[in-house]
Write a protein that binds this DNA or RNA. Structure first.
Length: 423
RNA sequence: GGAGGGGUGGCAGAGUGGUUGAAUGCGGCGGUCUCGAAAACCGUUUCGGGCCAUUUCGGUCCGACGAGGGUUCGAAUCCCUCCCCCUCCGCCA
């Protein structure tokens, strides 16, 4: 949700920003509806004020035991007229809110121009890509050979894009989660296992509804939805609250399974566990004061990079183009891991500054000073560990000619063998 | 799943159709008193929206007593639907 009041006063900056995302037309329509509402509202309020006055007169007359038939008759008429006006106002407001809910956040001026993935700007490449003097095998090859990944039975049981993760890879997953939660707790984040079934409210609040409803699994009988990321339930943790300045920043690390329908991705990444309907993830989420969100964004990105470096995964950082941002992000950085079998970098983490966009929709505010008016906070989210894709990066980058996989030091220190999948 | 009770301001807790946006208490903030503090006393203390004013303080009106509808001249108060919480029973990782 955008700040309609400031846009009303000076629409040009917002219009220019939305133009970069191709959403400027909707803004003008929105301003028109807003204008219509502001015409209707004073008339209605005047009527209500009169109703309140006459109502009091009637009460007075009744108390004095006098006859009140005349003002009551007047009120009967007024009541009908008010009801019509109220209905009209409600229609306009519903239309306005519906349209407003579809507008994306304003992109940060520093976000690169462009509309697609290909317009992202590479900020840096980090780590050494491995050299292999043998035929590289992909994660599914390796995983099937060692009994780590079982997809055929999974598709019989659940359909395409599901997998059984088994054996050593499960132990690696557990160690990764423990490792990353330790790291995040040291960074002042509260570990959370959140609900994965939520109502529509949090999905609306985080900007997944109405725009990305196709991506979400529904449980219609109970009017619940399976979250695609714990960002949704973490954001809801402070929905509807007014916090004080000393409550901020609030930082969380949510560990949960994530569910995505992957509608519209038919035919893409169909091999292995790169793009599946269900995966586990640790997600960072911060509530901060508006002036701090830029710094917090850097901070989350830095944590992501540190973890990838710990795991010795070669990666690059890209700055996502304005037209390719999700609805709620004003700026987004992705970390892409080197995937040897594909001979390219692929997304393993993502980190967004959603500024006040989600906070408005969630009604999450704070008081800058003890007695000050509440204002929306800023929220940010970032992947700390996407288990599936990290396992892909680890197995493929760590592979040897015999199909065994060398694990990075921190996992070994966490109790895993140096090499898995050896004869 | 069955039976019952309840949702009012930061908290506690009055209020069952007409100056009740809301008594009272606690907490918070400001002040008086004090060398200082405590106590006492005085004052103040919800959120949203519109209009007016604007350098600043502000003024005024409307809405909100879980949410949405209804009855009524008038609803925190009556009716309906939904949501949430609590107690007991059943089931259960």
């Amino acid at each position: 949700m955008l700040d309609l009041r400031s846009i009303r006063e000076d629409p040009e900056p917002a219009r220019a920003a939305l133009r970069r995302r191709g959403a400027a037309d909707a803004l003008d329509e929105l301003l028109q509806l807003d204008g219509r509402r502001r015409e209707l509202l004073p008339e209605l309020e005047e009527g209500r004020a009169r109703r309140n006055r006459v109502s009091e007169e009637i009460a007075q007359l009744k108390r004095e035991g006098k006859d009140a038939d005349q003002p009551i008759a007047e009120m009967r008429e007024l009541g009908g007229a008010l009801k019509e006006r109220e209905a009209e106002l409600a229609r306009v407001e519903a239309e306005r809110d519906e349209l407003a809910s579809t507008l994306p956040n304003l992109p940060d001026p520093d976000a690169p121009d462009g509309d697609t993935e290909n317009d992202a700007v590479t900020l840096r490449e980090v780590g050494e890509r491995p050299e292999f003097d043998f035929e590289v095998r992909d994660h599914l090859d390796l995983g099937t050979a060692h009994g780590w990944i079982e997809m055929e039975k999974a598709s019989e049981a659940s359909g395409s894009r599901f997998a059984y993760l088994m054996g050593d890879l499960v132990m690696v997953e557990m160690a990764l989660i423990r490792l990353v939660l330790d790291l995040l707790r040291d960074e002042g984040m509260t570990p959370v296992v959140p609900p994965v079934l939520v109502r529509g409210g949090p999905l609306y609040g985080t900007g997944f509804f109405p725009g990305e409803r196709e991506m979400i699994y529904e449980v219609p009988r109970d009017e619940l939805f399976l979250v695609g990321t714990s960002e949704v339930s973490l954001a809801a943790l402070h929905a509807g609250e007014i916090m004080s300045a000393r409550d901020l920043p609030r930082r969380y690390a949510g560990y949960s399974t994530c569910f995505r329908r992957e509608a519209g991705a038919a035919g893409r990444d169909t091999r292995g566990i790169f793009r599946v309907h269900q995966f586990d993830k640790v997600e960072m989420f911060s509530f901060v004061e508006p002036s701090q969100s830029g710094a917090e964004h850097e901070r989350l990105l830095q944590i992501q990079e540190r973890f990838l470096q710990m795991l010795e995964i070669p990666y690059r950082v890209v700055d996502i183009a304005a037209g390719d941002l999700g609805a709620s992000a004003s700026r987004k950085f992705d970390c892409e891991a080197w995937i040897p079998s594909q001979d390219r970098y692929r997304e393993v983490t993502s980190c967004s500054n959603t500024t006040d966009y989600q906070a408005r929709r969630l009604d999450c505010r704070y008081r800058p000073e003890p007695e000050a008016q509440p204002v929306p906070v800023h929220t940010l989210n970032g992947t700390a560990l996407a288990v599936g894709r990290t396992l892909i990066a680890l197995t493929e980058n760590g592979q040897a000619a015999d199909g065994s996989v060398r694990l990075p030091g921190p996992l070994v220190e966490a109790g895993l063998p140096e090499v898995i999948g050896a004869e």
